Simulated scan of single mutants.
Amino acid sequence: MSRFVPTTEERAAGSALFDFLRQAGHDLIDEDFDDRPDLTYKLNGHYMGCEIVGMIPADMQQAIRTFSKVMFRREVDVAKITIPIEPDMWMQTAIERKWAKVQKYPLSKYTKNLSLLVHYPMLGPHDPVEYDRDEFIDGVCYGQSVASHGFKNIFYWSGKKIYLLNYKKPSAPRVMGDLSKGYPCYCIYIMSAGAEGLEERFKDRQIPLQMAPDRVKHIKPLDPAYRNLKPHEPEGDLRFELDFKASPI
Rank of each mutant, 00 (worst) to 15 (best):
R3K: 14
T8A: 11
A13N: 03
G14T: 07
G14W: 08
S15I: 11
L17E: 07
F20L: 01
F20M: 10
R22Q: 08
Q23R: 14
A24W: 00
D30Y: 08
D30C: 00
D30V: 11
F33L: 10
F33I: 08
D35C: 05
D38A: 00
D38V: 07
N44G: 02
M48H: 09
M48L: 04
G49P: 05
C50R: 08
V53W: 04
I56G: 06
I56V: 12
A63W: 02
I64P: 02
I64V: 15
T66W: 00
S68K: 03
K69Q: 11
R73F: 06
R73D: 08
V78N: 07
A79D: 10
K80Q: 04
I83L: 15
P84F: 10
I85M: 12
E86F: 09
E86C: 02
W90E: 09
Q92W: 03
T93R: 14
I95N: 04
E96W: 12
K101C: 06
V102L: 03
Q103M: 13
Y105F: 13
L107R: 12
S108V: 01
K109R: 12
T111D: 05
N113A: 08
L114K: 00
H119A: 06
Y120M: 07
P121Q: 07
M122T: 11
G124N: 10
P125Q: 01
D127L: 00
E130W: 07
I137N: 05
V140R: 09
C141H: 12
S145E: 06
F151D: 02
N153H: 13
Y156L: 02
W157N: 08
G159T: 00
K161W: 06
A172T: 04
D178Q: 04
L179S: 00
L179Y: 11
K181S: 05
Y183G: 14
C185Y: 00
C185S: 15
Y189L: 06
M191D: 13
S192M: 07
A193G: 14
G194Q: 05
A195L: 04
E196V: 15
G197P: 11
G197W: 00
E199W: 04
K203C: 03
I207G: 11
Q210D: 15
M211E: 07
R215D: 02
K217M: 13
D223Q: 05
R227E: 15
H232N: 10
P234S: 09
P234Y: 07
G236W: 09
L238P: 01
F240H: 10
F240K: 05
E241A: 09
S247T: 10
